[in-house]
Design a protein around this nucleic acid. Structure first.
Lengths: 143, 143
DNA sequence: TTTAGTGCAAAAGTTTTGCATGGTC
DNA sequence: GACCATGCAAAACTTTTGCACTAAA
């Protein structure tokens, strides 16, 4: 399930981010989280895990940095907190459950022609697009 | 573009929200905003407009109340602030220029079948979706 | 040696809450 | 009068920043 720490390290290196112990701790915690997590939550988990001591400010700085370098995604916030999530490199979209905040990655995307057409009609040239679908997942609907 | 204040009043009444002067001020300000706005921004505009004095806490309370009653939508946060928008039922997406940051609203959207299908295939029931296309606009390309 | 990264504490910003007051039914 | 809504100020929280210190190239 988890990603070997050497993988994470390689991932940072490949993105031009120096893989310090603190950054690996943050990224490792994020890799262990199937959904999304906030800076505060990640910080608490790292601290509970009791390994190396990481400052809260460093967690914030690291998340911002990783996001800038495209290593992690930033999602819509639920409660006034920003959420981050480790993502696969391939183009994908997000399905977010409004009730339990579960996030599912959706690989299927045949929107490129539509996107290009919409952009052209407004004088734009599209470079990227992002879709976020919110709704309720099966288990929340059952409850 | 503005909505008559009697319309807004009726809208509140219909939703079971008592139409006080402050709530109408907040809602009126939101009706004048084509995009989305934060509590802080709305508060400042009301205060600049110089009419009735409205407390910041009231703006927050009003937005939360209106959202609960489905009168307004809460959108993803922009920078750690929550954004609200009047529900028009008119669904649109955003085209953002990466160079000049201009935002253009795109009304055309025939994505509902696609969105519903994607959601269903993952056990979700979709309620809303948001598309953001980034690229370069015509004038930036010319420059 | 030079630079980038970090911890800590303080600051900045946003949202919420407590409480007395004012307005409505 | 009973109750809901409001203003103001304080509190709670999230996030950013300044600065001295440490680790690394």
């Amino acid at each position: 399930m988890g990603m070997a720490s050497t993988d994470l390290e390689a991932r940072l290196r490949a993105s031009g981010v120096r893989p310090t112990a603190q950054r690996l701790a943050v990224l490792g915690e994020l890799a262990a989280e199937p959904n999304d997590a906030t800076a505060q939550v990640l910080w608490q988990r790292i601290r509970e895990r009791g390994g190396r001591r990481v400052g809260l400010a460093t967690v914030y700085r690291t998340l911002a940095l990783l996001h800038e370098h495209g290593v992690i995604d930033a999602l819509s916030h639920h409660d006034g907190e920003r959420c981050y999530r480790l993502c696969t490199g391939a183009h994908h979209h997000h399905l977010v459950c409004e009730s339990c905040h579960r996030v599912v990655e959706v690989a299927e995307c045949d929107l490129d022609p539509w996107v290009a057409g919409v952009a052209r009609r407004h004088g734009f040239v599209a470079r990227a697009h992002q879709v976020e679908i919110s709704g309720t997942c099966a288990s929340c609907r059952a409850a």
